[in-house]
Structures are given as structure tokens and as C-alpha cells.
């Protein structure tokens, strides 16, 4: 096997059950968050306290898998200590890497836990190699996760101009905006991914059946309205229907999942280090199903990259759990832009 054929499958877990499902179904790495605003999936009932994290790390390590901890929101001066404690806690627990976005926190981690691998989170908004090389020079990052904005040609070019490992998103809900550079959620609800670790938070959602149809609102702003024959989706505010001129349509993005199974040989060829599956907020069943398909696909691609074809059964499995039951190549495919 050629050295560039190594491609880590990085899977999400919002609970111990999901972590075990990921490991049992072939994840190389599982990424988790603690139970507070230190990570970008700060949802009620989700994530790991210290004892669950300890058990998860033990379980993963005994199966040869790694555990990464996302500490990828932006601490403020007034609440800094919580993030610093979270870095210390991750180091004490013996995790394999921490995923960071904030400059100050990265500096703290590099100074106090130099042996702990640092990954640049997608929330760090690094979309070019000069930015990635900045984080490498300043903080010695080992890996960067790319925002979902670059075309394949741009990903390849970037990859050739940095020695930092590159991780890309392979599957899951699609952020249309550059991660870390979207405050639409706080504009409407007061809470954003950067500051609170949430987007379009559930507590701001209201559903109401009206004469015109079922309405979804986020802090009173109408996000969408559904006819009886339509499937209603979660009102993530960039995925609603709005009016521009006289047209009403998905002005920003349709509800759809990113799915890059068909790009696997290309991602391996250009030397991508890891593929990330989105969805720490999803169920253990989702994690198991998606991990299993991607494990099969990566193994098939590594065995015979030239004969790799996307199996219909894989797509059928993934479409069952895709947002809006649709999938897209997103920005990897230039015409999407």
C-alpha cells in the first residue's frame, strides 16, 4: 500500500453508545465534546462528562481507535477559565488530540501540553495554505480540518503547499457558510456556533399549524411553511425558503447532506489524511450505519483504487439518513458554487 493511501475515518459521537457504535463499525478516530459550550454541538442531553469520556477512551483505545476532543468554540475573556480547564481535562484524560479554533486557547495548549496533538478545527476558517501554515508556525498544529468551501482542485493545491495533515468533511449536514464566519444564528436567536456552540438552537424553534400550512419559526422569524404534502425539516435558518424578488425558494441552500463517496479515490490520490463524518447530534444508529458504509468504501478504495465504484447499496444506506433525503457534492463540485 502506498503511504498516501492511509486515510483515517473520523466519526462523530454525542454519547458513549454512539462512540461504541463508531468503534465497533470501524472508525479509526472518534471525536467527542464535553457537556458545555466548549464545543460546537452544545445540545441538551448530548456529549460527555469526565466518567463517560474516560470509559469511551478506554473502550476506543482497547480497540485500537483514537479519541479526539473538540474544544472548538471561542472563549471570551469573562469565561476563559472553562475552556482552559477543558484543555487540561482533555490532557489528563489521555485523549489523542484536541480540536481547537481559538488563537489564545491554541497558545495555551501549545505551552502547557506540548505533547498533546493539536488539530485546527473547521471553526478556525482556514481555507488557504498561508492560514494553515500560520497555525503550524505559531502553535505547531498537526492537522487542519478544511471548511466546506473549496473545490477539489483547490483542496489539492492547498494540500501540496503545506506539511500539515489535511482532514476534509465526507458526509453529513452541509454548512453552506464558511464555518467560523457565520453569525446568522446569533443575529436571529442571540446564540451562534462561535460563542455558544449552537446554530439555530432548539429552544428558539416554534412550530405552528396555520391555514397556509405548517410554519417553522426561529425566534419569531418565519423560516419555512410546509404544505400538507411536504416533509417538514428542522428550521436551520439557512435552509428555509425565502423570497428574493418575486421568487420563493431555498435562497441559500436546500436541506441536503454532503456525500463525497464518489470522490474517495481522488481524496486518497491527493494525500488527504482523514475524512470526517458530521453528526455528533445524531443517534447511535446513524453513527453505526454511516461508519459501516464509509469503512467498507475506504477499505474497497484502498484495496483497488482503480477499480473503485460507489456501490448502490452504500448510497441507499446513506440516503436513508441524509438530511432532506438528498445528497450533494457541495463545493467540491465547482458548479455548486
Amino acid at each position: 500500500m502506498s503511504p498516501e493511501a492511509k486515510l483515517d475515518l473520523v466519526c462523530p459521537a454525542g454519547s458513549l453508545t454512539a462512540l461504541k457504535a463508531a468503534v465497533d463499525n470501524g472508525a479509526d478516530c472518534v471525536y467527542i465534546g464535553f457537556r458545555d459550550g466548549t464545543n460546537a454541538r452544545n445540545f441538551a442531553g448530548l456529549n460527555f462528562d469526565a466518567s463517560a469520556a474516560r470509559e469511551g477512551i478506554r473502550f476506543a483505545h482497547s480497540a485500537g481507535a483514537k479519541v479526539l476532543v473538540a474544544l472548538n468554540t471561542y472563549p471570551q475573556t469573562g469565561n476563559w477559565q472553562r475552556w482552559q480547564d477543558a484543555v487540561d481535562q482533555a490532557a489528563d484524560l489521555g485523549v489523542d488530540a484536541i480540536i481547537l479554533a481559538d488563537l489564545g486557547l491554541m497558545q495555551y495548549a501549545a505551552e502547557h501540553h506540548p505533547q498533546l496533538r493539536r488539530h485546527l478545527s473547521v471553526q478556525g476558517s482556514a481555507t488557504n495554505y498561508e492560514a494553515i501554515n500560520f497555525y503550524q508556525k505559531q502553535f505547531g498544529i498537526s492537522r487542519a480540518v478544511l471548511p466546506r468551501v473549496l473545490s477539489m482542485a483547490q483542496v489539492e493545491h492547498l494540500r501540496q503547499h503545506t506539511s500539515v495533515e489535511i482532514e476534509v468533511f465526507g458526509f453529513g449536514s452541509l454548512c453552506v457558510m464558511v464555518e467560523g464566519r457565520c453569525t446568522l444564528s446569533s443575529y436571529v436567536t442571540g446564540e451562534s456556533p462561535n460563542t455558544c456552540g449552537v446554530c439555530s438552537p432548539a429552544k428558539a424553534v416554534r412550530w405552528k399549524q396555520t391555514a397556509q400550512g405548517l410554519e417553522s419559526r426561529l425566534n419569531d422569524v418565519l423560516i419555512d411553511r410546509y404544505a400538507d404534502t411536504e416533509n417538514a425539516g428542522y428550521p436551520t435558518l439557512c435552509k428555509g425558503r425565502f423570497k428574493v424578488g418575486e421568487e420563493t425558494y431555498y435562497a441559500i441552500e436546500e436541506p441536503a447532506s454532503l456525500n463525497t463517496l464518489e470522490l474517495l479515490p481522488e481524496l486518497m490520490r491527493i494525500g488527504i489524511a482523514a475524512i470526517k463524518i458530521e453528526g455528533r447530534q445524531r443517534s447511535p444508529a446513524y453513527v453505526a450505519q454511516v461508519t459501516r458504509v464509509w469503512r467498507d468504501a475506504i477499505d474497497a478504495c484502498r484495496r483497488e483504487p482503480h477499480n473503485y465504484v460507489v456501490k448502490a447499496a452504500w448510497m441507499a444506506e446513506l440516503n436513508k439518513v441524509a438530511e432532506g433525503q438528498q445528497h450533494t457534492l457541495g463545493a467540491y463540485h465547482r458548479p455548486w458554487k
Binding site: 466546506r148 468551501v149 453569525t183 446568522l184 463545493a331 458548479p335 458554487k337
Partner: peptide, 18 residues
């Protein structure tokens, strides 16, 4: 408020960004 790889003005006119 936000930046994207996608051009929403071109999208509103059914035009590709390029």
C-alpha cells in the same frame, strides 16, 4: 453576518458563480 463559497446573488439569477 456570513461568508460562503457560494454566490447567492448569482444563485438568485440562476447563474453559475463563474
Amino acid at each position: 453576518l456570513a461568508f460562503s463559497a457560494r454566490c447567492f446573488t448569482a444563485r438568485a439569477h440562476n447563474l453559475p458563480k463563474d
